Amino acid sequence: MPNYEFICESCQKPFMLHLGLDALEKKEYACPHCKSVNVKRQISTFQTKTSRKS
């Protein structure tokens, strides 16, 4: 499951959540600081992991 970055539009604090795709699509998440569901997903970087060495 990937990590997603959000910012709360109520308290303006950024946070990161480890969510599955189904939870992300159903918007089953809230701000861990103020418990608001008024959050906006941020664009973030990603990292891939391969088994082959370069």
Rank of each mutant, 00 (worst) to 15 (best):
L19F: 05
H18E: 07
Q42T: 11
Q12I: 01
L24A: 06
Q47L: 15
F6W: 08
T50Y: 10
Y4F: 12
K35A: 11
S54F: 14
C31D: 06
K40E: 13
C8F: 10
F6A: 02
T45C: 07
L17K: 03
N38R: 05
R52G: 08
Q42A: 06
I43P: 15
N3P: 00
C8D: 04
S44G: 14
A23D: 06
L17F: 00
H33K: 12
Q47R: 15
S54A: 10
Q47E: 15
T50S: 15
V37D: 09
R52I: 06
P14W: 06
A23G: 01
K40I: 07
E9L: 13
F46W: 13
A23L: 05
P14M: 03
E9V: 00
C31F: 07
M16G: 09
F15T: 11
S44Y: 04
A23N: 07
K13F: 06
K53Y: 08
K13N: 04
L24K: 07
F6L: 02
R41W: 09
T48K: 02
N3E: 05
E28R: 01
K13C: 01
K13G: 01
V37T: 14
F15W: 09
E28G: 04
Y4N: 05
L17N: 02
C31N: 07
Y29S: 01
K27A: 15
L24Q: 03
Y4R: 03
Q12F: 09
I43S: 14
E5F: 08
Q42S: 08
C8G: 03
N3A: 05
K53H: 13
K26A: 06
K35P: 09
C31Y: 07
K13W: 05
S51N: 14
S51D: 14
F15G: 07
K27P: 04
I43M: 15
S36Q: 01
H33E: 12
D22R: 08
D22M: 03
R52Q: 11
E9F: 02
C8E: 05
V39F: 03
L21D: 12
D22T: 10
Q42F: 02
E9S: 10
S44T: 15
Q12N: 12
M16E: 13
G20L: 01
D22Y: 03
E28H: 02
H33T: 12
E25C: 05
T45I: 03
S44I: 15
K49A: 11
C31K: 07
V39A: 03
V39G: 00
C31S: 10
K40L: 13
I43N: 15
K26F: 05
M16V: 15
T45N: 11
F6S: 00
E28Y: 01
K13I: 08
F46S: 10
I43G: 14
S54I: 13
S36N: 01
F15H: 12
T50F: 13
E28F: 01
T50N: 14
N38D: 10
P14A: 04
I43T: 14
C34E: 09
V37E: 09
M16T: 15
L19E: 10
P32S: 13
V37W: 01
K35N: 13
D22E: 09
E5Q: 08
S10C: 00
M1N: 08
E28Q: 04
S36P: 00
K35W: 05
E5H: 10
C31R: 07
L17Q: 06
